Computed example of a mutant assay.
Amino acid sequence: MEVLGVTFLCLAAAFGLLVLVIGAFLLRRYHLNRALGTFDASIRLPTSGWRVGVCRYTDKHLEWLSLLSLSPLPRHRFLRSSLEVEGWRPATESERVRIQPGAIVVQLVHDGEPLDLAMKFDVYAGLSSWIEAGPVIGIGTWR
């Protein structure tokens, strides 16, 4: 086989692989958007900067999945009964370039550790209601 044919086959294989990876990312994003109880939210932990992702409600946990990953497993899981809402604030100028447009920064505490989630205000209303609507600790199915 001549050199031009081998080069063409290598480029075609690389292009095909690139199309498959992009397709997998788009399919995952579509699936996450259609799932019940999901919303776009960037996260900032004390040890890192802002990362873009999607949060998902479950019965006992708030799960955060990275948008730049193909893994179906959440990168962070926060126990609902251990989450406390400290409040919210508008995003600063430097934060606006790292989070979605029009988002607010929600300040949470999970087991004594602070964390920030950036989300739309209407999503914040749902999140705070979800956290506050859980059963009282020690009663129901928390533990």
Rank of each mutant, 00 (worst) to 15 (best):
H110N: 05
A133L: 02
A125H: 07
S48F: 12
L127V: 13
L9A: 12
G5N: 10
G37Y: 07
R77Q: 14
I137Y: 04
D122M: 08
A133D: 00
E132P: 02
K60N: 09
G138H: 03
I99G: 02
G126A: 06
C10I: 14
G23I: 06
I43S: 03
R75Y: 13
Y57V: 12
L36I: 03
R51D: 12
M1V: 08
S71Q: 04
W64Q: 01
L62N: 08
L70Q: 10
S94Q: 07
P135H: 05
E95L: 06
G140D: 04
L4H: 00
L65C: 02
E132R: 10
R96C: 09
V109T: 06
W64Y: 08
P101F: 00
E2V: 02
E84L: 04
L108W: 10
L108V: 09
Y124G: 13
G49C: 05
S82A: 12
T38M: 09
L36Q: 03
G134Q: 06
M1Y: 15
L108I: 11
Q107K: 11
I104W: 03
G112L: 05
G140V: 00
R51N: 08
G138I: 01
S66T: 05
S82R: 13
V97W: 01
A24H: 04
G16H: 00
S69W: 13
G53V: 02
L20K: 12
E86C: 13
L83V: 11
F39L: 08
I104Q: 02
L4Q: 05
I22V: 06
W130C: 07
W130P: 00
P90I: 06
V54T: 09
H76N: 07
V54D: 01
I99H: 08
M1S: 08
H61M: 06
V136R: 15
L26I: 03
N33Y: 14
E93V: 08
R89C: 12
E86R: 15
S128R: 12
Q107S: 15
D122N: 05
G16I: 01
P90V: 11
R89Y: 09
W130A: 01
